[in-house]
Nucleic acid binder design. Structure first.
Length: 612
RNA sequence: GGCCCCGUAGCUCAGCUGGAUAGAGCAACUGACUUCUAAUCAGUAGGUCCCAGGUUCGAAUCCUGGCGGGGUCACCA
């Protein structure tokens, strides 16, 4: 309906000035509350071409519109702002638009967009950082689908390497044959426990060494005025590689794994499967799933052929030691290694190969990598190299970069055990929702099982919304108390708007009220108009969210819509059998608004309860 | 040090590709539930939009230079 208004505006300009406006130059925005009118047209951009003062132009166009458009019945001009007042024809039609069952659903555009997110290591359980990643990735995939794309959700699991071997060695040494089944510990936590135990054992070994042999190494290798503590902190990796007994065992295991040693591979598979079972439970609890999973054990050799190809084409160069590099200085970057001197892959090699594999396998048109912002440079380089290789999808790659999650007590560090566990968090928010709901008593008389489902929806809404409402680019501080807030700008606040609507609709049904036609017979007040305008903007909101790769756009939209509804609900009686026309209209509005809220929140991975 | 990101109310954050008097929530204070769910609503108070220049009818927004915070510059991932 807004299109029609724009068209009328365009024609009015044509009629008054004989100038054809470019469609996307016609910017109509909702009029600010402080002024009279419904939509505002800013005439400043026209001043130059029309060579007249803004006041005159605005009045001329305004007059023309009142005369020729059935949608406009008045206007006022403040400086260069033309505020148009619209007729009920417009509002009737707008309500009609937003009430359609397919409103806000884009028809498929035939394009495939792959979204990579989560991508954990198999040596420890998922934590708060993964949750931000997962929510962003999941949400952007939903938003892509809402915009007509076919989204393919994927993750690449880091299931190999030295870290994974640490857990394996540790379990061999200290596990005494324990399993997740025998201990009742969730698989990923179980393996994580041994990873932690490895670190502990290693630290003890390191400490002992520092008192003996390490002393000589310290005096020989320390920097000027470097204390023992600082030195040994810096030297840790080197110790692991050169002196550590447990380190040697771990490296030996990695080599055995790479050579395909049966026993090692069997242990590796057994332990990874424990982890996958655990991950699966966490994903289920968070309500996310994947369409395709890559394992590094299967992709880490990819990309070597590409390096060869690039070498032949002169895109890369080989150093004397045999390592392969790419020179990106002309693009403002530096030289980057893409193959080690011993011919083994680095991360970049694998990423090049995996991108090509995904393109070939799925025929994707574009890809989004959901990875924390510490890897900004890596992806800049990756995309540049793919571009130079002439990959057809190279300009359709995007890094959905997000800031790290800090705690109120400081940074999360797995080494220091300050991470917030994902599973714990899900339990915490459930409990908080339960407590809150019980205090309010809105679910009394319901079966426990049903109640639990609702607590879960509310708790997850609080947690998810708390994280997803923040612009991904920004580093965020996770305050556990605020994450379970249920008032104000929160998930439960939005759910509550929806629940109130469902409650009214139940009442309507019970009362046996029959809806009657109302078009052309009701007057729209300011809040009616505000809400309709907002609802109308939904398609452009989800388009913007995808364009900016930013789900928080949708989160903020849902909040504003819920807020308006809460006020509407407070100020207006929706079911009023004395006024069937107005009631019919309001029921219509509330129904559509409820659906829209649910639709928007679904894009964030948040479900709506019918009661709360 | 080079490059990238961030800086808006006491706190957490919005502010769309430049538009009218910069907005929410939390925290504080005041009111509103025998009426469709008060997880709500209405109100009070709270601002050098980090600083300084520049671009123009108009700058929180764009440009330049600073300041502060974070990240990154490995034959790690």
């Amino acid at each position: 309906m807004l299109l029609k208004l724009k068209e009328d505006l365009k024609q009015s300009v044509q009629a008054a000035y004989d100038v054809t406006m470019d469609d996307n130059a016609i910017i109509l925005s909702p009029t600010k509350k402080e002024f009279n009118g419904d939509y505002t047209f800013v005439v400043f951009p026209l001043v130059k071409t029309l060579k007249n003062n803004p006041q005159v132009i605005a009045e001329t166009i305004g007059n023309e519109m009142v005369k020729s458009s059935e949608l406009v019945d008045g206007f006022n001009v403040v400086k260069g702002f033309l505020n148009l007042s619209l007729t009920s024809i417009f509002w009737d039609a707008l309500l009609n638009d937003v009430s359609k069952s397919d409103f806000g659903i884009q028809s498929p555009n035939g394009k495939k967009m792959m979204v990579e997110f989560s991508s954990p290591n198999t040596n420890k359980p998922l934590h708060l950082g993964h949750i931000r990643n997962i929510l962003l990735g999941w949400s952007i995939s939903q938003i892509a689908e809402a915009n007509g794309y076919e989204a393919i959700k994927t993750q690449i699991i880091n299931d190999r390497g030295i870290a994974v071997c640490k857990s394996m060695i540790s379990w061999q040494k200290f596990g005494k044959g324990e399993t997740p089944q025998s201990t009742g510990i969730k698989g990923d936590h179980f393996v994580g426990k041994y990873y932690v135990q490895f670190e502990k054992a290693f630290q003890e070994e390191y400490k002992d060494w520092q008192k003996g042999e390490g002393q000589n190494v310290y005096t020989e290798n320390r920097k000027e005025a470097e204390g023992a503590e600082a030195f040994f902190k810096r030297y840790k990796n080197q110790y692991f590689n050169e002196f550590s007994k447990i380190g040697k065992e771990t490296k030996a295991m990695l080599i055995k794994w790479e050579s395909g040693d049966e026993e090692t591979v069997a242990l590796w598979e057994k332990m990874n499967n424990w982890v996958y079972e655990g991950f699966e439970k966490t994903y289920q609890a968070l309500g996310v799933s994947f369409d395709s999973i890559n394992y590094e054990s299967e992709t880490y050799l990819l990309g070597k052929a590409t390096v060869e190809k690039g070498l032949k084409e002169g895109l890369f160069y080989k150093k004397d030691d045999g390592s392969v590099w790419v020179d990106l200085e002309d693009a403002g970057m530096d030289h980057k290694i893409i193959l080690r001197s011993d011919g083994t892959s680095v991360y970049m090699t694998q990423d090049l190969g995996t991108a090509q594999m995904r393109y070939e396998k799925f025929g994707i048109d574009s890809m989004i990598y959901t990875v924390a912002d510490e890897q900004d440079y890596h992806f800049k380089v990756l995309f540049e190299i793919l571009k130079r290789l002439g990959e057809p999808y190279a300009d359709q790659l995007h890094h959905l970069s997000y800031g790290m999650v800090d705690l109120t007590t400081g940074k999360m560090k797995s080494r220091e055990g300050t991470v917030v566990d994902a599973d714990d968090l899900v339990v915490d928010v459930f409990e908080a929702a339960k407590k809150s709901s019980t205090e309010r008593g809105g679910l009394e008389g319901m079966e426990e099982k049903e109640k639990d489902k609702i607590y879960n929806k509310i708790g997850l809404a609080a947690l998810k919304y708390f994280i997803i409402k923040i612009n991904p680019r920004k580093r965020m501080t996770f305050d556990p108390n605020e994450s379970v807030d249920m008032q104000g700008t929160t998930g439960p606040y939005i759910q509550n708007a929806y629940v109130r609507i469902q409650s009214v609709l139940r009442k309507v049904k019970q009362s046996g009220f029959n809806e009657v036609p109302f078009k052309g017979e009701i007057t729209y007040n300011n809040l009616d108009k505000e809400i309709l305008v907002m609802m109308e903007s939904y398609p452009s909101v989800i388009a913007e969210a995808l364009e900016k790769y930013d789900p928080s756009v949708v989160a903020n939209y849902c909040y504003t819509l819920a807020k308006s509804f809460h006020r509407y609900y407070h100020d207006n009686v929706i079911l009023d059998t004395e006024n069937p026309k107005v009631s019919s209209y309001r029921i219509n509005l509330a129904t559509s608004l409820g659906k829209l809220l649910a639709k928007g929140m679904k894009l964030l991975g948040i479900e709506m309860p019918d009661y709360m």
